[in-house]
């Protein structure tokens, strides 16, 4: 491995982790409230499509973001309606949302733009573009720290920095507010919350809305920050990796960020290693890196790296009276 370019790997680690961080935080809210959310993938895809369409129509990335969040919240409410109000199976509801997202975005994309399910490419002014921090260009050539500042810290778009703000913000909401305390309680013992005179239904709905907002950021990032338009099935399993990261982090905000960065790093490293050979081993198949996040999560679930204890009431609809 002659030129292991750590700085550029770290830079792309950040770029690949952002949708995972937003999505895993979204899952954190719903799952801590006791609602399983397999539909993260679908919400991300729906919001990516909405953001790309709105940004193309209006030319404004912020309206794209707004559209992405709105659609994602609406889909969250469908999930809420099925799994909270109708006490339907939460996993089935999530699977349905993923199907719908994959199908409907492609059908509408083809019907509106006739480009094989893509949306037309966006101009730079309709996207979230890179922000260059002060002195980044001057520091680029001044040793390791300078390059780190220029390529890893600086040079991302605004959503990237929002993702890193969303992590402490989610922590604060979940652990330092009354809403967060109740939200965590409703995921462990909804009966107790109900007895205290707090509506389980309303709490869980608010949790799914929080998740919808965060998924909206993730989808918007995919469509109009990382790329310049929507491509059919562009979420490509990221929602499931985010779910794995959420479990790997044992349903806690800061570890969620670290798990997402780890999985993003694996992705970036796999891209870097493609076609390169390791001395003594030869070329490492890229599939190993693709499978590694899931393998690690299963090993964790098996209890070999600490114990992952999910919220107790997860997946169980709450029935007030029997």
């Amino acid at each position: 491995m002659e030129n292991l370019d750590l700085i550029s790997i770290l830079g792309s680690t950040i770029r690949l982790s952002i949708p995972l961080i937003f999505t895993a935080l979204a899952g954190l809210f719903t799952e801590r409230a006791g609602v399983f959310d397999i539909g993260l993938e679908g919400k991300m895809l729906f919001s990516a499509f909405a953001a790309a369409v709105a940004a193309f129509m209006t030319g404004s990335p912020w309206l794209g973001l707004l559209a992405g969040i709105t659609v994602s919240v609406l889909i969250s409410l469908v999930h809420g309606f099925a799994s909270i109000t109708n006490r339907g199976n939460q996993i089935v509801s999530g699977v349905a949302i993923n199907f719908l997202a994959s199908g409907l975005t492609a059908v509408l994309g083809q019907a509106w733009f006739s480009q094989g399910g893509r949306t037309p490419p966006l101009a730079a002014s309709a996207r979230f573009t890179e922000i260059v921090f002060p002195y980044a260009d001057q520091l680029r050539d001044t040793g390791f720290l300078g390059r780190f500042y220029a390529n890893v810290i600086s040079g991302h778009n605004i959503l990237t920095y929002l993702a890193f703000i969303a992590v402490p913000a989610s922590w604060w909401v979940l652990y330092r507010t009354r809403f967060g305390l109740r939200l965590r309680a409703v995921g462990e013992n909804p009966g107790a919350v109900d007895t205290a005179g707090i509506s389980v239904t309303f709490l869980r709905y608010r949790a799914t809305v929080c998740a919808g907002i965060l998924c909206g950021f993730a989808g918007t990032y995919l469509a109009i920050a990382q790329s310049a338009g929507f491509v059919k099935d562009m979420s490509a399993g990221k929602g499931y990796i985010a779910l794995a990261a959420l479990i790997f982090a044992k349903w806690r905000p800061v570890p969620v960020m670290l798990a997402c960065l780890l999985f993003g790093f694996l992705d970036a490293f796999a891209n870097f290693m493609q076609g390169k050979s390791v001395p003594g081993i030869g070329e490492v198949p890229v599939q190993i890196f693709q499978a590694l996040p899931y393998v690690l999560t299963c090993v964790l679930l098996a209890g070999f790296i600490g114990v992952a204890r999910p919220p107790k009431a997860g997946g169980v609809p709450y029935v007030k009276e029997r």
Partner: peptide
């Protein structure tokens, strides 16, 4: 105008209504 993806949409709706919203 209707691509093959329309099947996926119908599937999604059937799963949603016959599965998740079965008690609607």
């Amino acid at each position: 105008k209707i691509t093959r993806d329309m099947i996926v949409v119908i599937q999604g709706l059937v799963i949603l209504f016959a599965g998740a919203l079965e008690y609607l």
